[in-house]
């Protein structure tokens, strides 16, 4: 790959996460929120940004990374994603416990809450499956099917959750980031299914 193209890919991926964060930091809504609520909101935006790097890392779409480094990055980002998610939910819980309890029990009046909670459980399941893969010697085929299915649920849930919310994120940068997350995930799935068709060993 030409260096110019490699730089462009990294720049676009970085900007797709940095620009929404910067624009959210300018949101007028922040003036009427406590530090805990603000931290909870930003943890959600960070989690959405981290989610973009999951298919990019493991799909080999980021230039200059060896397969071993891609996997390490994917694992590191996965752990960070779980941490951001915990901060997101805990911060919202501190801010308004009844709203979070309603969301967790799927009786919230806002549809995006249910999508968020579905995605949350899928993230925990996905991370748990990754942690237990070796101790339980989960067969590779089951592992791939399980982890990829959960990944699809996570991406669909997170994107629906983010798009339906009126919060601190600026609309255009939010839609762009969500679009990239979906595009990267679809590309990964297409690549994987092609690999299976051609009979090459899946990563």
């Amino acid at each position: 790959m030409r260096p110019a193209r490699a730089i462009l890919i990294w720049a676009v991926a970085g900007a797709a996460v940095a620009v929404p964060l910067a624009l959210a930091a300018l949101s007028p809504l922040l003036a009427w929120r406590s530090p805990v609520y603000i931290a909870a909101g930003f943890a959600g935006i960070v989690a959405l940004g981290l989610l973009l790097f999951q298919p990019l890392a493991i799909g080999g779409f980021l230039p200059g990374l060896s397969p071993a480094r891609r996997r390490r990055l994917h694992r590191f980002v996965g752990v960070a994603l779980v941490a951001a998610l915990v901060v997101h939910v805990a911060g919202l819980w501190i801010t308004s416990p009844p709203d979070v309890v309603d969301a967790l029990l799927f009786r919230s009046p806002t549809p995006f809450s249910a999508w968020g909670v579905i995605a949350m459980w899928a993230v925990f399941a996905s991370a748990g499956l990754a942690a237990l893969r070796r101790p339980l010697r989960i067969p590779p085929r089951w592992w791939r099917a399980g982890h990829l299915s959960l990944a699809v649920v996570i991406v669909a849930g997170v994107v629906a959750h983010a798009l339906l919310i009126e919060g601190t994120m600026e609309s255009v940068s939010k839609i762009a980031l969500c679009g990239l997350v979906v595009a990267a995930t679809v590309k990964l799935l297409v690549d994987r299914s092609k690999r299976r068709v051609t009979g090459r060993r899946a990563e």
Partner: peptide, 8 residues
Amino acid sequence: SMRGGSNN
């Protein structure tokens, strides 16, 4: 009553 109406 609406869902979540009594929150807070």
